[in-house]
Structure formats: structure tokens, C-alpha cells
Design a protein around this nucleic acid. Sequence first.
RNA 1: GCCCGGGUGGCGGAAUGGUAGACGCGGUGGACUCAAAAUCCACUAUCUGAAAGGGUGUGCGGGUUCGACUCCCGCCCCGGGCACCA
Length: 821
Amino acid sequence: MADHYDVQRAETRWQQRWIDEGTYQIENDDPRPPYYVLSMYPYPSGQAHQGHVRNYTFGDVLVRFRTMQGFGVLSPFGFDSFGLPAENAAIKGGAHPLEYTEARIAELKASVLRLGAVYDWRREIRSHDPEYIRFNQVIFTHLFKNDLAYRKGGLVNWCPGCQTVLANEQVESDGTCERSHDIVERRSLEQWFLRITNYADDLLDAIEDLDWPERVKTMQRNWIGRSEGARINFVVEGHSDTTIEVYTTRPDTGFGATYLVLAPEHPLVESCTTLEQTAEVDLLKTLASTESDIERQSTEGALEKRGAFTGSYAINPFNGARIPIYIADYVLASYGTGAIMAVPAEDERDFEFAKIYGLPIIETVERPPELGEGAYAGDGRHINSGFLDGLRIAEAKSRAIDWLEEKGVGTRSVQYRLRDWLISRQRYWGCPIPIVYCETDGVVAVPEDQLPILLPTDVEFLPTGESPLKKHEGFLHTTCPTCGGPARRETDTMDTFVDSSWYFLRFTDPFNSATPVNFEAARNFMPVDQYIGGITHAIMHLLYARFFTRALGDVGLSPAEITEPFSQLFCQGMIRLGGKAMSKSRGNVISPNDYFASVGADALRLFHLFVGPPIEDIDWGDQTDEIIDGCSRYLRRVWRLATDDDSTEDAVVADAKDPATETALLKKTMHQVIMKVTDDIGRYGFNTAVAECMSLTNAITRAIRTDVERPQIDEAIDVLLRLLAPMVPHLTAEAYEVRHGEHIHQQPWPIADPALAADDRVIMAAQVNGKLRDRIEVDAQITEEDAIAVGMASPLVLAALDGKTPKRIIAKPPRLVNFVC
RNA sequence: GCCCGGGUGGCGGAAUGGUAGACGCGGUGGACUCAAAAUCCACUAUCUGAAAGGGUGUGCGGGUUCGACUCCCGCCCCGGGCACCA
């Protein structure tokens, strides 16, 4: 009868119902315990790809699972809708970024809906909405007034391809842009920064307690890069009023500092350079300033380390030695003090430099005798180091710092690799920075009641990529909010990572139009219980979001006690095609829409859940379609079991098994599977959860074949449907409705009875010398003595013993006995 | 160079130190059918054997243990991250 399951009809019908009935809408005063599941909101790039499908399927399983468990689940969705692709499309002669973006959103949203992932769509956020822009700007002005946003000139990363500056985080280690892969240039420009470095320590220390993947935590720790050491002042010979401050993590090696090196951009370079050395120094300065980061950071061979002698000398405060001052491009102006004391015996870079320039090398740490030439950074007793002699590194370090502080020539100091976040972008399609420049009042934040500053739509996109805001007279010219005089608007827009740094807070109450964050709602739902997304955001987005959550609390825009945004983070594996990450920019995308049309959303979801551990990468290969077909076949089988009493029996030859035993077996299996699936879903073990459901399905089939009573079979089928409901929502909903006329996703999650899940008979392994010789069915309650007796009675065991008497017997009833000779 | 992952049948993958290969894909054989599709049943690591059984087997080499895919030491290979940050 109900043999035919109309995938398309059922799936679209249920998707409509979940929306119409508001099944997954949640009110802020919902009485159930709150649970917040969030998949990283996407950049709207058009129809979904398999990475989206994977991400949203995982999130959806959790949303439905926790709902059935009785939680009030917050499951919102939005779009990270500012960004370069829309603007680039406009430049190439396409539609205006606004139209372009909204069209892409419509496509992506359609795919997400067709997947059957459920959200409270009333809470949808789009970064480019005027309301969201307004709150972004409110946040910016608060940060500005609290000195967390500031303007600073200096060398910044410029991407010629993107026609904008980039944050440090957006430059790859090879000096290329993470978006366009162009070589990033250095330009001296004034830009807007956010003071993330104020939070460096806090961001670092709090990592420890996060339930995040270890590799993400490590990446964040490395990125923040805390190091402890000292700042030490070196007096320049002949200029007793000029000192060069260096930063070092090895103050204990001060007696081995045989020269100083300044970054070419260091402010004291000029005054230290003697007349004779001017030409050489200038040459290096020019070279360093025109070099790309690639060249400058090249580690290819020692000769690449270019340096120049300034002609001046400094006095080493440790031993009074007169040591030369060099400049070299391997010293970075932006880290520490932009100057180092070089200790060639204990630092590899200094060693190479010293070799090339013939500088003295003084060992200050005793090294292992077998070590050849080169720097030694390991531990050992100090030598040639005056009052530090005989001490090991840790002790020598703290003594050296004490001594420096006593003498007033140095201080303990902590440094970070992390730099302030450069957020201004010279592009159009982003949130305008709400600042005006007035001749009288200088840099003025636009008052909140005059926000939002919206993007003008009557703009012309130039092929150069230059922001049209710079040429838009109507946008440019304004009046100063303070004095009313003529003023010029800031034309830079914000990095889109600003938008994504607080959207999860906004989701807790996007209906409130007074403030960015409703404190009460945020307190109720934050932090996000399960945050799901790609590993690609390990540093940028996740670090910025952690920073914003703290900063917003500090400027009074969100509850200060909420410091961490995401208590648990799950990073799903990538999808590869032909060995490469599947991505739109590579053009190797397999569209999910084709699968929706052929096998349906449930089968595609089941595939993603079943194919392997969610954390691992998957290869989209020749076999993939066969596995998806297998998933589709499995679902049809579940449908037949659930809806058709007769057809299964047709083709079946009843086995001659005892129905009573089989009934007990079915019940036991059912309770075991409930336990396993519940546990698996809770820890992202979706692949094994599906496998368990398949096992239960097999057990039901067997039960039917062995004439188990119908009520027991029906109970097992209902449990199976409920266990599958979070993973395969459409088919299970349809089947449950056919069976009971009720909505499965409003049913409670099955509860296992551990007593019924327990085995009463088990197979015991009988080993001789650790080798398996026999498997014997025994009572689960078997005693140690009986287990040994049963094992000894086995002909196979006896044969393996070959007449010998066991010297030792290890019995772990009821699983194993091992006879050791 | 440093730091993380990972290496298990033909394939995707299971296994709190205790029966390696759950579950699925593929394959082989069978049932149903005029036939096919669909469905159902059985088998499917490998060598050996008619079978019962036996040998081998979780990247390689050692070790701990009655017992190791699992723990320890040393390697090899693959993937990813970081890499002049003083």
C-alpha cells in the first residue's frame, strides 16, 4: 500500500510546515532551559555548496536533537553580506553590489531551506541591513570614545589586487593576500585600528578553559605569541643622552651581546649613522623599504641577511664593552623596541650575521661538548658572565633582570606577536566608519542619533577598484556635528570581520532596536553552546569575536560577565575534490541542488553524517554517488518498515528461531542502540550514530522474519524513527505522521533502560598465551571459577595447551580467560 | 626547522589495554521474475585446508604487558598550521 514515498512532495511539505507552524521559533522568555546552536553565518556566494550542506546538517541535527531532549533551542541564521566579491562583480559591469548580494542571498537561502535545516528565520541578520550598519557604527563610536579604536600612521599591508589595506591576520606567512594571493606591499598610510592588544593577556589566558579543538587553541596561542624578557638600555658612545632600548627574551646572555642591531626604520638610525657610513646605511634603508615581505622574510641562505654598520658604538651595560651598532632588515621595527642586542653564541640569526660581518662571538652558556659550530639555545651553566656564572638559564634570567632593574638600565617586559587590528578598508561594499574630519574639531565621531551613515547607492564603480565613496561629492561633504562647520566624511569602510565579531550576540535579540545587544537576552542565551564552522576561521574570526565580546562588555554595550562567545567549538573537515579543497574560487564545486532533485535532502544529509567522522576531511570521489544511493536505499527500507506491514513479509522466509528469544533480543538491541545514539550525537559521532540506527533496522527486519509479536516490532520502529528524526527529518516526520498522526519532532527523545540493555548471555574469549583459541557463550554473571572451568573444558583450548598446565590464569569474566604457560 | 592531526580489508570507516574489521559501498552466489529493475537471503582481510582448524595481519623497528590498532621510545610516509617576533 504505502510503498511509495514521494521524496519531493514530502520534503517540501515538511519544510513549509516547520516554517508555517514556527516549530523552531523560540521566544526570549521560553521556559525551557536555553541551548544555543550556531553555524558560522556564511558569505552569500550563491547556491550552497557541499561545505555548507555539511555545516548546516551537523548544526541541524543538534538543534533537533536538543529540542527533542527538552531544551529551548536558539537556532538563528544570517548572512555575512558585505565583502569584495559583490563589489568586484559590480566593477566587472554587473549589478550594483546591493542587488547582486540580495540575489546571492536568495539563492543560498533557497538551498538552505531545501536542505531542511531549521532556523528561527524571524531572527535573520544581514550585515548590510541599515539596522545592522547602525549598530556596527554605534559600537565603533563607543570603541572610539573608550580609546579602543584609534587612528595611526605607519607602514601597513597593501594588497594591490584588492586595492585596500589588510590586517596582519589577512597576510599569509609567504607575504601574500589570503584572498587574492597577490604579493602584499608595504605602504605608509594612516589607518583605523582596534586595540585588541589591550586584551592580549586575557585572550591568551582564557584559551585554556575553552572546549575547543586543541589545534585551534594552539594556533591562537601562537598568534598572540606572548614572550617574557627584558628591555635593556644601551648608551650610545659619545652621546651620553642617547640610549637604544632593546627587547630580549634572553637577558641572561647579556655578557655575550657583541653588537646591536636596529631595524632600518628605527628612529635613531639617522642620529647613529656617521658621515662615512651614510651611503651604506641609506642604501640598505632604501632596499628594505622597497622589498616585499617575501624577500625580507626569506630564510634562503645566510647571505640574504643584509645589514650595514652605522659607524657608531654602544656600551654593553653588563661588561662595559664597546660594541658596534648595525642595522639589518631581519630586525622588525614593529616588534619589541625595533632593536636587539645580538648574542651570536646563543642565537642562530645573530650567529649567521656575526659570521658574515666578522663580529666577535662570546659563549655565555656552557654547551654540550659534542655540539659543533653554531648557536646553542639550550640550557646549561653560564660562563664568561660575571655574576651569572654557574647559573642555569631560568635562574640567570631572573638574576639578570633584578640586576638591570637595580642599576636602572632595564626592566622586565612582556611582548606579544599580536598587533592591533587594522580595520579600515578602502572599499565601498562595507560598513562606513562613522567619523568626520573637521578643520576646527579634528576627528569627530558621528553622534549616535545621526546614525546610520549609509552607503550612497548612486555610485560609479571604476575599473581601478578605487572606492567610489572617494569621488562621491554628496557623501564626502558634510557638516561637523560639533561646530556645524564644513567637514569631510571618512570614506573607508570597516573590515567585514567587524560584522561577524558580534552577530552571535545580536541573534539573542535582533528585534530590539534601541541597542546592539539586549543584556537580558544575551545573559539568557550566551555563550553559544555549540559553534560549528570551518577551521579556516581558527585565527581571524574566532580571535576577533573573542576580543569583541570582551570589548563590548567593557564599553557597556553587552553584559561584562560574558567574555567568551563560544563555549564549545566544532570544526568540521573540508570537502576535497581531486585532492583540492572544494571551493567556488577553484571552480570544483558539486552542487547539492542536483541531489535535492534526485535523491532528496534526507539522503544527502545522511550521506554527510554517515561517510566518516565529521572532523575529518572527505574526498568527493567516484564512490560518493554510490554511497549516496546506498543512503537513499536505506531510507526507502526504513519507509517500508514503518508504513507497510505486508511487503516485507512477502519476500521473507520465516526462520526457525524461537520468537520469545528473538523478542528479548530485539528489546535489548533497541535499548543498546538508544544509549549509543544518544551518546554519539552528543559528541559529534554522527557516523557511528547512523551505523547504530542501521543495526537496529537490521534487528527489526530479523525480528519480523522470526515472528516477533507486532507490538514489540512497532515499538522498535517508533524508537528507530525518533532516533533518526534529527538526522533524517523529512522521512521520519512523514512516516511518524502516517503511523500516529503526530509530529515526530515534538516527541520526546527515547530514554534507554540500562537494565534492559544489559546482555545476559555473552561470548567469552578463551585464550592460551594471549592467543584466541575459542569463543564460548556464557552467562553474563559467570563467576571467575566457572569462567576458568568453561575455558578449560574447551577442546580447542586443551589442544593449544598440549598437555601443559597453565602457570597463570587471567580471568576477566565474562569477557575473557587467558591461560598462560 | 618547530607544533598539531593521520596511516586499519578492494573502498569509506568501527573498536573504555581484553574476540581487529561494527555499519555501509563494491563484489560473489542464491531467492522472487517470462525477463529486468526493485527487494530479500547468504558469503566476502589474507594465506592454507574438503572441512574442522591453523598461519599471518592495524605504516616500519624496538619496548612495557598475561594480552597492544590502543601505552612508551626511535624512524618512515601523508595532510595541515607556524616559521627571522629577538
